[in-house]
Every structure is written in C-alpha cells, then in structure tokens.
C-alpha cells in the first residue's frame, strides 16, 4: 500500500486544482468542483484487518460494502453507513462526515477514525493520529479533516475503529407513540426515527436485552419491522434534539421528513427543508478561523476549488 499511496501523492502533485473522486454519491455537497479540476482516485482495498486490535487499515477508495464484508469475517463491523454502500467510498464518507440512521447508538462518523494518511496541498504525505484505539499524541488533525470535503488535505488511507458485531439488531415500528418518551425510556437504543406519524426503533445488543426492552418499553404499540424506512429525501437539517418536537408544525406532516430522535438530524426533501430553513452560518469569529486554516493548509486554494464546508447543510444532495 506504500506504493499506492506514493502514486496517489504523485497524481495529486503540488500544482493545479485537484479533487479526489470516490463513488460520487454525494459529489455536489458543498458545491461542484470548479471547471478544470483534475480528478484523482484514492487507493482501493482493505490493507489489514486486525480483530484483536479492533482496527482496520483501508484505502480511502474502498467501498463501504467491501469494507463491511472483509471486517465481518473477523466478527466485527465499522460504524460507517451510507445509503448506497456498494458505491460510497470510505474516503468520501469521511470527507462529507455525515452519518446515517444509527448515529444515536454509534456516535458521529469522526469517532470511528483513528489515523488518516493524506496528501497536503504541497504534495507531501501527511499522517495524523495512530493505528491505536486510544491516543492523544499531538493535535487531532483527523477531527479537522473529517467533514472538510477535502479542502485541507486529500486522504488516501485510513485506520478505523472496529467493534464486535452485536448478537442481534432488530427494528420495530409503531404508530401514535410519543417518540421522545420512547427514546428516553430505552437504554442505549441504536436509533429512534420519527416522521410525525410513525416511530421506528432500532435496538442492538444481547437478544435477552432487546426482548426485555421491546416488552417493557415498546409494548403493544410497536410491531417488528424488517428494516428502517427509506430516506425521505437527499437533504438534511441539523436541529437541537428538543426542536424536533415542533417539526409537525414547522415542516408540516404533508411533506416528507424523518427525524433522528435524541440526535437532531432531520432527513428530508426540498419542500420540508425549505420550511425548516437553513442551518445558521458560523459566526464571523469562527469563520475567521476557517479562513486562517485554509490559508495555511492550502494557500493556493487548489484542493477541491468550488467546494466549501459552509455549504454542506444548505447545499445540494446530502
């Protein structure tokens, strides 16, 4: 994989506008790359899965599907999800940085990243973090890069945290229940989703615990579901968990949306997104810090020109 990384760095070089193309499932997020931007591909393939260390080293161009099937052989999984895992790549999911339906149980995308090997705007190989499940050595550039849309460095290889596959994961759906009371009553649920009418609940862990929770908390209002519902649209909004309560009046029940209760993410289409309104922009002080970072990491503005992290939530197609 050293050779693959070297060749990735060579393709990126040190001059001219450049972007990494993955599966292009979220290519428009934060804006389209400027005309004339060279597209390069990140290394593909799982380099090594070490179940005893609970880590996997993987090329950023690997699809989530390939990652899942390799890691599964060792009885583990990586807490990353995408609506099209056969196309979405690890690097793309990390560059966008937005998780899926299971964030309540799994935590945010960034918490799965242990090490990133990237290429700087100057064409040099940069490593941050370490292939260890616990580490506070130096500044946490991984947190900075996840969700940066490749505007600070281009990532070629990552080490991700693996977790044991739980004994069971089951989904339930009910109508008329108070999703906030359900979420509060469950112990560490995987997911609680609500569209204003139906509530879906995902539970993962020991079978005995799931059965217990289903009986004592969910009760007769819920019935088993095969899987969580499909995405109601490609946009999303970020609200405080409490503000989700007002969605039936703010977004309306006639326009499809799906809220992650206990988290605050709302998946929706354009109609509901428009009603909810855009996410507030960062304050000017925070924006000054963004500018100061971009000036240092990419002074010539060659990494993903045309894209901006300020446009992620407001922009097209998440």
């Amino acid at each position: 994989m050293k050779d693959a990384l070297r060749s990735f760095a060579d393709q990126i070089g040190s001059e001219g506008p450049v972007a990494v193309a993955g599966g292009k499932t979220h290519w428009g997020v934060g804006g389209w790359p400027a005309t004339g931007t060279k597209e390069v591909a990140a290394p593909v393939g799982v380099v090594a899965h070490e179940p005893a260390e609970m880590i996997v080293r993987v090329g950023a161009g690997t699809t989530l599907e390939e990652l899942r099937s390799t890691v599964e052989e060792g009885g583990q999984f990586v807490a990353l999800e995408a609506d099209d895992p056969s196309k979405a790549t690890v690097g793309g999911v990390l560059a966008v940085g937005l998780g899926g339906y299971r964030r309540l149980g799994w935590g945010p995308v960034r918490d799965s990243v242990l090490e990133m090997t990237s290429v700087t705007a100057g064409g040099e190989v940069l490593r941050s973090g370490a292939p260890l499940v616990k580490n506070v050595t130096g500044y946490d550039l991984c947190r900075l890069f996840v969700g940066s849309l490749g505007t600070l460095a281009l990532t070629g290889e990552v080490v991700l945290r693996c977790r044991p596959i739980p004994e069971a994961e089951t989904w339930w759906v009910g109508e008329g229940a108070d999703p906030f009371a359900v979420a509060a009553g469950l112990y560490r649920p995987l997911s609680v989703l609500w569209n204003g009418i139906h509530t879906w609940v995902g539970l993962a862990g020991y079978r005995v615990d799931i059965e217990d929770q289903a009986r004592t908390v969910l009760g007769r209002a819920f019935r088993p579901a095969e899987r969580p519902p499909p995405l109601p649209g490609r946009l999303r909004r970020s609200l405080t968990p409490r503000d989700l309560r007002a969605l039936p009046s703010t977004a309306g029940v006639d326009r499809p949306w799906l809220a992650q209760v206990g988290v605050g993410v709302v998946h929706c289409g354009e109609a509901a997104a428009e009603r909810i309104g855009p996410v507030g922009p960062p304050s000017s002080g925070v924006w000054d810090l963004h500018r100061a970072l971009k000036e240092r990491f990419d002074p010539a503005g060659r990494l993903n020109p045309g894209r901006s992290v300020s446009g992620v939530a407001a922009g097209a197609g998440v």
Partner: peptide
C-alpha cells in the same frame, strides 16, 4: 477565549453545526 481575547463558540447542541469540526480540533490541544 482565543489568544487575541475574542470569544467564539465551537460546536453546537445540534448534531451537525456548519463548517469544520473546530470543537474536535480544540479538544486535546
């Protein structure tokens, strides 16, 4: 409070605040 005395808020109570994860970069610095 930054080194020039200005005050900023990093991160948010909502799950996906706009922009880079400066909260994550600050923790552990």
């Amino acid at each position: 409070v930054l080194a020039d005395g200005s005050v900023v808020v990093l991160g948010g109570i909502d799950p996906e605040p706009e922009g880079l994860d400066l909260r994550g970069a600050f923790v552990g610095s």
